[in-house]
Amino acid sequence: MSLLVFYLFAAIAVLAALGMVVLRNPVHSALSLALVFVSLAAMYVLLSAPFIAVAQVMIYAGAILILFVFVIMLLSPGTDQGVGALKAQRGLAILFGAALLVLLIAVLGGAVLPPTRGTFTPEAIAAEGDTQAVGALLFTNFLLPFEITSILLLVAIVGVIVLAKKRQSISKQ
């Protein structure tokens, strides 16, 4: 039964991912991406990680993608824009795509990375609570990267304000 649920959401995720690449209208692409995020969240639930699932929906679909859509709507690019610009990249894209495919097949076949059972098995997470597990790791092993990320975001915010102010002073002259 849970396998059935997995296949359902896997199918939705793959189709939506294809749609994101293939669709011409950027808003349609963004929506397909939202569908990918939501089906990925469903898979996290199946993997007994509801916290990650909810965070996935909240951060990616609810915050980041909404800003994408906001920008797309503000700029309202034509549906065919960017196709010409991509022509030069086509050869490289095929090369890297093929490399990625080979890598994926190798990993999936277990040839490169033989699967091992980690510390956080479903039983261990059920005993500790998945939110607690994430929280404990964030405040112990990953404290430094976590704090550095916040500084990174702060730098980005300050950068945006500097850029916006510069444009304002130019338009005044």
Partner: peptide
Amino acid sequence: VNVAVLYLLAIGSLSIY
């Protein structure tokens, strides 16, 4: 759900769509 409060926030953020 043991993340119900976060779930509510996530659904709230989707309602913008």
